[in-house]
Amino acid sequence: MLRIENLHAEIDGKEILKGLTLEVNAGEVHAIMGPNGAGKSTLGYVLGGRPGYEVTAGSVTFNGPEGPCDLLEKEPHERAAAGLFLGFQYPVEIPGVSNVQFLRESLNAQRAGRDEKPLSGAEFLKLARAQADALGLAQDMLKRPVNVGFSGGEKKRNEMVQMGIIDPAFAILDETDSGLDIDALRIVGDGINRIMRRPDKAVLLITHYQRLLDYVKPDRVHVLADGRITRSGGAELAHQLEREGYAEVVA
């Protein structure tokens, strides 16, 4: 579903991704683990198309609901409309724009891109409320400005509420587990399974710790170090990393 080949990318002329190759098939959940500064978030941003992240070599092919495409050729909003969702490690605060307005604009922009008709205010609110409830996010937070004054945990839940509303084909979730207590971790893990565990969907789960993987069982685990995938294995690799540390396992 997502095929990344020999991807090189730089920020401000500094090479961060140095020949990364990875393939994720439909129906699979892949975890990416690795030390701080390895380039995990950079991978997410490059796939999302963030300005300033320059791809210097390699290719990314995305085979979503619309069929295969060259992901790197598309504008960021077109990647979203094609079915890609990026869960941010640090969700951005947007003063003056309510969560409801932001999400309705997002969803309807994506629907317009797919020639679907926009959802009415009432239809949208019903959908948003159901997703907020499922993730234990208080209803009044939907009316508040996007992420403004939200705790770290609330921001991460809000990312999952957004994912539930948008219902993407492919999700890249960047440290969605950080800042969550154990109950929130379970709720978020259940949310990922509920929204994304489908034969026609796939997930790339970027995480630092093994604990989220107890709830969202990965089909494959990859170690990302110094801009490359240095090792891949099954779910047991995550446990080994947790026990022995990256230095041991990667060396």
Partner: peptide
């Protein structure tokens, strides 16, 4: 805010919007 712009774009909102 460039970060807010990219956040919105990543959710499907075109840049001008």
């Amino acid at each position: 805010d460039a970060r807010a712009l990219f956040y919105m774009e990543s959710r499907g909102i075109p840049r001008a919007r």
